[in-house]
């Protein structure tokens, strides 16, 4: 069991640190519908944490709570040892949380490079005025940020499409560009909403490799939602299983796989 908060080293040599984010008794309602019912779990520094569950289980709602887009009616969100107050999404972004979307949300008319540059926004300090005039700190900042973006482009192997407008790219590449933009923010915590949705086997393999490499190379903590069970089990250190807004399992992939409730949820035993 890995319930202790002592740092430990995984079988493949990565160090998993203390608790980065702690979700305590979260309940989220839309009118009379309870999308999330009293769920608690934590995300530890350096780990890949998956949230899985059948359609409508409340996975995306959970991700939106983490990203600050939804405010839960009950419960507390603790981030880096502090209770997080109600926040606007941009404030959450400044805390070091970045995300990708299930339905790609890129600027279609802009080039790949410019899209990724927008991810650097939270790191730019010069105002619009100075940037428009291109003087003083604005230029130095642009150069520095461009360099970081170029490293991400190199890392995700998208050099060939650097100057291509995003609208012209195939789906799989758009997903990669979205990951690049999220990475550009240098997040402490990276949220991926169904990163493999709609991909073929080869694209899934590529994406898995990139997710592992991001985690390994930058030490980024990753929380992801995914449908594809195989992928999740291979990638993640720990898995939260949701069904009808409740948490029905939490643990290592092996533990979760052996959990009767999880098996029932996936194989479709009647709920009463």
């Amino acid at each position: 069991m890995k319930d202790t908060v002592e740092p430990y080293v995984t079988d493949d040599g990565r160090t998993i640190g203390g608790v980065l984010m702690d979700m305590r008794n979260i309940t989220l309602r839309f009118g009379g519908v309870e999308a999330i019912k009293d769920i608690s779990f934590d995300i530890r520094e350096g780990e890949i944490r998956a949230i899985i569950g059948p359609n409508g289980a409340g996975k995306s709602s959970m991700l939106n709570v983490i990203s600050g887009f939804y405010n839960p009616q009950e419960g507390e969100v603790w981030f880096r040892g502090e209770k997080r107050p109600q926040m606007k999404p941009y404030q959450v972004a400044r805390l070091g949380i970045a995300r990708t979307f299930q339905n790609i949300a890129l600027f279609e008319g802009m080039t790949v490079l410019d899209n990724i540059m927008t991810g650097r926004l939270t790191h730019m300090k010069s105002g619009m005025f100075w940037q428009a005039l291109w003087v003083g700190r604005a230029e130095a900042e642009e150069v520095e940020n461009r360099e970081r973006v170029e490293r991400i482009i190199d890392f995700l192997e998208i050099q060939a499409i650097r100057k291509t407008p995003v609208g012209r790219l195939p789906y799989g590449l758009k997903k990669r560009v979205e990951l690049a933009r999220a990475l550009a923010a240098e997040p402490k915590l990276l949220l991926l909403d169904e990163p493999m949705a709609g991909m073929n086997v080869e694209e899934k393999e590529d994406m898995s490799r990139f997710i592992l490499d991001v985690n390994d190379e930058f030490g980024t903590t990753i929380a992801l939602i995914e449908h594809d069970m195989g992928v999740v089990m291979d990638l993640s250190d720990r898995v939260v299983v949701m069904d009808y807004g409740r948490k029905i399992g939490d643990g290592t992939p092996d533990e979760v796989r052996g959990n009767q409730e999880v098996i029932d949820a996936y194989l479709g035993v009647s709920h009463d």
């Binding site: 890392f155 390994d216 190379e217």
Partner: peptide, 9 residues
Amino acid sequence: YLDGRGLRK
């Protein structure tokens, strides 16, 4: 190896 990416482990 030249590019150490992914080889740390």
